[in-house]
């Protein structure tokens, strides 16, 4: 039996938890933005519960390290510029790379 070596006190150094692809493992859908429809109203930024959205170089971008795929942005978008796209291939449950 190979027991993992761990810190005695369950803990993590700064940055070691967020740097991984945790959200990629749990996210079922991701937002995709249609630049032609988007009017940069920023409504999606305000509603995003994880502050995963930002306007960068004239367009809305998502930081996929933090997006959990809830789809609130797509619901709130007044011009329907956001589509939620499945992350999983079929129903087998693995992430499509």
């Amino acid at each position: 039996m190979a027991v993992k070596e761990l810190p005695v006190v369950p803990s993590a150094r700064p940055g070691t938890m967020a740097a991984g692809a945790a959200m990629e493992r749990i996210r079922e859908r991701r937002p995709v933005f249609e630049k032609q429809k988007c009017n940069l109203c920023r409504e999606c930024l305000f509603y995003c519960p994880d502050a995963a959205l930002a306007v960068d170089q004239g367009e809305v971008r998502v930081d996929l390290r933090f997006c959990k795929g809830c789809g609130i942005c797509a619901v709130e978008c007044p011009v329907r510029a956001i589509t939620m796209v499945p992350e999983y291939a079929g129903n087998r449950g693995f992430i499509e790379k």
Binding site: V3, K4, L6, P10, S11, A12, R13, P14
Partner: peptide, 18 residues
């Protein structure tokens, strides 16, 4: 440090073993 971190199935059991 982030103490008492959320720990997934890959580590929780090892912590409990120790």
């Amino acid at each position: 440090l982030a103490v008492n971190t959320v720990t997934g199935p890959e580590l929780y059991m090892d912590y409990k073993y120790h």
